[in-house]
Amino acid sequence: MDPMILSAVSGNVASIGYGLAAIGPGIGIGIIVGKTAEATARQPELRGQLQTTMFIGIAFTEILTLLAIVTGLLFN
């Protein structure tokens, strides 16, 4: 690869890694919230329970991105 490009990237690898790590959980959280909205539209009386499940799902998905922040700080 062109050495100029490599040197341009080298100062900022951690933030690139964070950007990559944010893709998957971003899609995941979008799916979770979208499905919850669908389910709420079908059965509005279950709204509370669905929201609870939604937040648990978001918490499990979100931890992947947060791990990226922590690894970025750890391995700098």
């Binding site: 918490a59 979100e62 931890i63 947060l66 791990l67 922040i69 922590v70």
Partner: peptide
């Protein structure tokens, strides 16, 4: 560990 990191990373960020 994930409970710790979730809370900590959110607040630090």
């Amino acid at each position: 560990a994930s409970l710790t990191i979730r809370l900590l990373a959110n607040m630090v960020a």
